[in-house]
């Protein structure tokens, strides 16, 4: 077990190194740099001033040297300075991470709390009216574009409550945070819960037809016991994988939700940084998201062992 974890951690380092090289090179392959964008925003051309900016920011250095500077800085805890705000990258990124983390956690909570039980109910009541209703609901969740759903929610709130649940200043209390993020999280969670619901349903249907479930029933166990302790426990593995993937997605992929609800989270910030070719910001943010993804993957693999004792990675 310990060997497995150490091996995975080493693999994580290799993965992150690969990600760092790829994002570093990709950013420089994309046409234009910060100097181009700065002049674009001012609508003028001045090759001399542009060259000066390029030199000041070290963009004229050889690529290996630029990469070494970035990675060397990371080891010293220096993430560099944003080209746009001219502030330390850490100061820019740090306040955004908790916002995204809260939104992601809440969305994940909603999607699990709604998705898993409804998926189970849908499977247990297969082909009933309730099942059809839940399947329509889950299909709507998957097929409805997030921006459209978000705008519908906003319009509904403005029309019926005369207020709009968007982020306009940092809430000060836990409940204020909850109130502000609940609606965007529900909008995000609707899609995720639909996915989880469908997956839980299909997994459950597969497991419910297996011999060990029939055996459990024949032993006289209650239906709830059969469903939750025997069937669900065996059906939950693919669901856990999906939850892991969703968690990783929620940390960097909520651009539409963050835009519609005006939440200053990581995804919106990342897209804006890409637009400005703000290399230090993009590189560090992508690396941060990559760390989240590989960590979540590791956690998911470890949860497998807890849920299904047959899995032993050390072997």
């Amino acid at each position: 077990m310990l060997t497995y974890i150490i091996r995975r951690l080493l693999l994580m380092v290799v993965t992150l190194f690969g990600v760092s090289v790829v994002i570093f090179l990709l950013l420089r392959i994309v046409p234009g740099n910060i100097a181009d964008i700065l002049f674009d925003s001012a609508g003028l051309i001045d090759p001399a001033e542009k060259a000066k900016i390029v030199a000041d920011l070290g963009l004229d250095l050889p690529l290996p040297q630029q990469y070494a500077q970035w990675i060397g800085g990371l080891f010293r805890g220096d993430l560099g300075f944003s080209y746009v705000s001219e502030k330390p990258v850490l100061d820019e990124i740090a306040p955004r991470i908790p916002i995204t983390a809260r939104l992601a956690a809440l969305a994940l909570f909603f999607s699990i709390v709604a998705g898993v039980p409804l998926g189970v109910i849908s499977a247990v009541r297969q082909n009933s009216g309730l099942d059809y209703g839940l399947r329509v609901l889950s299909l709507s969740g998957l097929s409805m574009p997030s921006f459209w759903l978000g705008l519908l929610i906003l319009m509904f709130c403005v029309h019926f409550f005369g207020t709009i649940p968007i982020y306009d200043r940092a809430p000060e209390t836990f409940w204020a945070w909850f109130a502000m993020l609940a609606i965007p999280a529900a909008a995000v969670g609707f899609r995720s819960s639909a996915l989880i619901m469908r997956l839980t349903r299909s997994s459950m249907l597969e497991v419910l037809g297996q011999d060990f479930v029939r055996t459990a029933r024949s032993k006289g166990l209650s239906e709830a016991n059969v469903t939750y302790n025997h069937a669900l426990r065996n059906a939950v593995l693919p669901v856990i994988t999906t939850i892991g993937i969703e968690t990783a997605f929620l940390f960097g992929g909520l651009i539409v939700t963050e835009t519609v609800f005006n939440i200053p989270g990581v995804a919106r910030f990342l897209v804006e940084a890409i637009r400005w070719r703000d290399y230090p910001m993009v590189q560090n943010l992508v690396l941060f998201i990559a760390i989240i993804v590989v960590t979540v993957n590791l956690i998911v693999d470890l949860i497998y062992m807890v849920v299904d004792p047959r899995i032993r990675y050390s072997e």
Binding site: G162, I166, N262
Partner: peptide, 20 residues
């Protein structure tokens, strides 16, 4: 004076209408 950056024009319009 507080300027809030709202890139989505639809959201900005709704926010204005709501009185925010």
């Amino acid at each position: 004076i507080e300027y809030t950056i709202i890139p989505s024009r639809a959201t900005a319009m709704l926010a204005l209408v709501s009185g925010k």
